[in-house]
């Protein structure tokens, strides 16, 4: 079943020196699957995620032939409806928990607030569900973490709390924007495993935004490769080694690896025709 359907989405930022086209006519759809959007900085991958949630800055122009979530036209939706969708049915995890958790509010309370913003639940039930959720993201001592402030926990723990907060209202679509790039490599895998398990258990759709093609290829089902605001290739993750577009190939090849001894590393030649 298709959850999200996007056709010809464009995002433009008007500036004094002319429009900047962050995203140009991209189309894709997401079902209950793990979809990766991969690209380098400036490719428009994060702006795409934000546009789905309606978090694009007010001065930007978002146009699309179709931007539908479960049959709801998001472009025509009232601000109120979009707010209700946000968190309740579509949730987003950002890169660094340090900046996305409120520093002066205890972690438990933040998650309770997130839950009660969407559901009318009693204090006791909210607390219990929060503790369950914290346990679900594999926090060993949920009752202790519930009463901690964000600065008192490590980056990995913060990101777990963030995931708990985002998933507590039971969204159907989760957008994760570089959820592990600010974390240490060994912690990264734990977080990915948690994310992977929850998405599978709850049958959510996941849009995983990342710059790391290799990581994404082992984690997601399908990969969309973006370059300068365009989708240059859409491919099943398992087929990635047979990618056709030179940009995708270049991205895969240019990373150093422990096993291959390649000196110098192959570099990416950007061709102007990719922009067409």
């Amino acid at each position: 079943m298709t959850l999200l359907r996007i056709e010809d989405l464009s995002i433009r930022f008007p500036t004094r020196t002319g429009d900047i086209e962050a995203v140009r006519d991209i189309s894709f759809s997401v079902g209950r699957e793990r979809l990766a959007i991969v690209g380098e900085s400036g490719s428009g991958k994060s702006q795409t995620g934000r546009a789905i949630l309606g978090l694009t800055p007010a001065f930007a122009q978002v146009t699309a032939k179709r931007l539908e979530f479960d049959g709801i036209d998001l472009l025509k939706a009232t601000p109120r409806l979009r707010r209700d969708l946000r968190g309740k049915r579509i949730a987003m995890i950002l890169q660094d928990p340090k900046y996305s958790l409120n520093p002066v509010m205890r972690i438990g309370r933040q998650i309770v607030e997130a839950l009660r913003a969407h559901e009318n639940v009693g204090t006791r039930e909210a607390r219990e569900r929060t503790l369950d959720m914290l346990a679900a993201v594999q926090i060993r001592d949920p009752a202790r973490v519930f009463d901690l402030y964000p600065h008192e926990v490590s980056g990995g723990m913060g990101q777990r709390a963030m995931i708990a907060m985002m998933l507590i209202a039971g969204p159907e679509l989760l957008i994760a924007d570089e959820p592990t790039s600010a974390l240490d490599v060994t912690v990264q895998l734990d977080i990915l495993a948690i994310l992977d398990r929850l998405v599978a258990e709850r049958g959510m759709g996941l849009i995983f935004i990342s710059h790391d093609l290799r990581l994404v290829s082992s984690f997601c089902d399908r990969v969309i490769v973006m370059y300068a605001g365009r989708v240059v290739e859409e491919i099943a993750a398992s087929e990635l080694s047979r990618a056709k577009h030179p940009y995708t190939q270049g991205l895969l090849n240019c990373m150093p690896s422990i096993d291959a001894d390649r000196h110098p590393l192959p570099t990416l030649e950007r061709r102007p025709e990719w922009l067409l």
Binding site: V185, L189, R197, E201, S217, I258
Partner: peptide
Amino acid sequence: LLVASEGFVRNAETAAS
């Protein structure tokens, strides 16, 4: 660290569940 640098492996997930 070496294992982590290989990227995500799904059987870690099955082990976790």
